Simulated assay, not measured.
Amino acid sequence: MDDIKETVRISGERLCRAVATLTTRICDVSLTDISDAHKELNIVLPLLLTEGILSKVDSVWKASIGVVMKLTMHAGTAIRPHMADLICCMLESLSSLEDQGLNYIELHSKCQNTVR
């Protein structure tokens, strides 16, 4: 998804959508046995939380967050063992959603207030 060549990037995005759809279906407890959903989540969530969401590439980061959101909506009780890691990762990634300009202004306004 982060290749220089556009055709490779487009193919990577298609593959990502297909794998995300399949993964969501496998983890959906209304469609799959809960033990199979547990197995799938044990494989997919650590990868998404350590590699995908922490990626520097916007398209990878956005796709990873989208898949994690879908998994949390459809996995039901199968996601409970992963909740601690999921919450920590999501809270840590909140700072990357903020506008960097606002962070700059906030930092400098605090510095100026302490100097006065």
Rank of each mutant, 00 (worst) to 15 (best):
I10P: 03
C111V: 12
R17Q: 13
S59I: 15
L45M: 01
S59V: 03
D33P: 01
L107F: 12
I4K: 04
Y104N: 06
S35V: 04
S11K: 12
I34R: 13
A20G: 03
R25T: 14
L47M: 13
S30Y: 06
S96Y: 02
C16W: 05
D2G: 06
S93L: 00
E13Q: 12
S11A: 12
V19L: 09
L45Y: 10
C89R: 13
T24C: 03
T72K: 04
K110C: 15
G101P: 02
L86W: 00
H82L: 03
T114I: 15
S95Y: 01
H74Y: 02
E92Q: 05
L54K: 15
H82R: 08
D3I: 14
D85H: 09
L71W: 04
A84Y: 08
L45A: 01
D99M: 12
T77C: 03
H38V: 01
T23H: 00
D58G: 06
T21I: 15
D3T: 05
A20W: 00
D2L: 05
N113A: 15
R116Q: 11
L48K: 03
T114M: 15
L41I: 00
H74W: 11
I87L: 05
W61V: 06
I4E: 08
E106V: 14
K5Y: 10
A37D: 02
I43T: 08
E40G: 13
E13G: 00
A63R: 05
I79D: 00
L15I: 11
N103F: 07
K70L: 12
A37G: 02
G66Q: 03
A18W: 10
R9E: 09
V68Q: 01
L15T: 13
L94V: 08
I4R: 14
E6F: 15
L49K: 00
H74A: 02
A18Q: 13
D3K: 15
V44C: 11
G66T: 05
T23E: 04
V44W: 04
G101V: 01
L48V: 07
T50N: 07
S35W: 09
G12Y: 01
M69F: 03
H38F: 04
T50D: 14
Q100F: 10
K56Q: 15
T72I: 03
I43H: 04
K62F: 05
A75C: 07
S30M: 01
C111R: 14
T24D: 07
D28K: 08
A63Q: 07
T24L: 08
E13A: 11
I53M: 10
